[in-house]
Amino acid sequence: MASGSSEVEEQEQERVMLRDRPEWSDVTPLPQDDGPTPVVPIKYTEEFAEVMDYFRAVFAADERSPRALSLTAEAIHFNAGNYTVWHFRRLLLESLKIDLHDELEFVQRIAADNSKNYQIWHHRRWVAEKLGPDARNAELQFTKKVLSVDAKHYHAWSHRQWVLQALGGWEDELDYCSELLEQDMFNNSAWNQRYFVITKSPLLGGLEAMRESEVLYTVKAINVYPENESSWRYLRGLYKGETISWANDPQVSSVCLKILSSKTLFWILSVTVINRIKTSEMPLRL
């Protein structure tokens, strides 16, 4: 009953219309007003229309009850993007003093079907914010789980970056990036996260301090897959704001020359070389 999620699962098997449930017999649904001439109408299913009409009745009456909470779970099941429903759910969680750890589980279940939805992640963040540093590990694990299915999941990465900045947990993040890159060197999201870590982690000393070891790491990656745009861009990113050392660093020159001397010419390599030639002229002009 706590989060209402187990009810959704039961109802998936054999869903009973709300009007046929005794516990809802005292509620009069509040239908939406489509006006005289609806434009671009949607062919609502009976179930959808009914859930939303009951939701509207309960929301309009501001009924802060356990059944209202379980109704929001049903409504979210039908349209996980409905921010009005999510908003009411948050009011209910507060009024009913629900254990928010249960709510994390609820979000996880909803996300299993539909994780590319902004409202789910916003809600998750709201819960995690309330729980504070206690939620750190759960959030890092949760995003890891989502990323194990889709390693480039934009929402999961955004959430993870927020967790790191708001709740901490930087200790293993560079290793995690390496692990993902080992699985797939072409994972641009993991390269981006790596950049985020080396520039933002309070434990690593910033871009300047990390440059040397990161250049080594990246050059190795480029040697394995010279056609990989992600590693080349990361390499250049390591010299952000340092155009002179970008143009003069022998490590960069040697990897360019090495790849140039191989038989294949990659677009990204040409761009890199041209850019270095261009920037190397700048100090002369100055």
């Binding site: 434009v39 671009v40 949607i42 062919k43 959808f48 939303m52 349209n79 993007g81 409905n82």
Partner: peptide
């Protein structure tokens, strides 16, 4: 324009 099929109800908001 005249009628969006049911799957669009999940985007009703």
């Amino acid at each position: 324009f005249h009628l969006l099929p049911s799957p669009y109800e999940s985007q009703e908001i």
